[in-house]
Simulated scan of single mutants.
Amino acid sequence: MIFKVVIVLVLFFIVASLFSALYFLAKDKDAGERTVKALTIRIGLSITLFLLLLIGYYFHWIPHTAA
């Protein structure tokens, strides 16, 4: 159960970072340093989520289902 909550929280932060990057892209008129930083955070969170899913599958925190 706690694993599902962590996944949903990370997904929420990924979407929030994406929308903050969109906001910075629309409002900032300079080089866009904050946009790049927000997108970098989003990529880091996405990689973290992918690794969490791999670890959860390996340790059977995510149930294996047969097709």
Rank of each mutant, 00 (worst) to 15 (best):
I2N: 15
F3K: 10
F3P: 06
F3I: 12
F3A: 13
K4V: 01
V6D: 02
V6N: 01
I7N: 04
I7T: 01
I7G: 00
V8W: 04
V8D: 01
L9Q: 04
L9H: 02
L11M: 03
L11K: 06
F13A: 07
I14W: 02
I14A: 05
I14F: 01
I14Y: 01
V15E: 08
V15F: 06
A16C: 10
A16G: 14
A16H: 03
S17K: 05
S17E: 14
S17N: 15
L18H: 11
L18P: 00
F19N: 08
S20R: 11
L22G: 15
F24Y: 11
L25D: 15
L25W: 13
A26N: 15
D28P: 00
D28W: 00
D28E: 10
K29M: 02
D30I: 02
D30A: 13
D30E: 14
A31K: 07
R34W: 07
T35G: 05
T35S: 12
V36L: 09
K37T: 14
K37P: 00
K37G: 10
A38H: 14
L39V: 03
T40K: 06
I41K: 15
I41A: 12
I41N: 13
I43F: 05
G44N: 09
L45N: 13
S46Q: 13
S46M: 12
T48R: 06
T48E: 06
L49I: 07
L49K: 10
L49P: 10
L49C: 14
L49F: 13
F50K: 06
F50P: 07
L51R: 02
L51V: 14
L52M: 10
L54E: 12
L54W: 07
L54A: 15
L54C: 06
G56I: 02
Y57S: 02
Y57C: 00
Y57H: 04
Y57R: 08
Y58P: 00
Y58H: 04
Y58K: 12
F59E: 13
F59V: 09
H60L: 06
H60T: 06
P63S: 07
H64S: 07
T65E: 10
A66C: 09
A66L: 04
A66R: 13
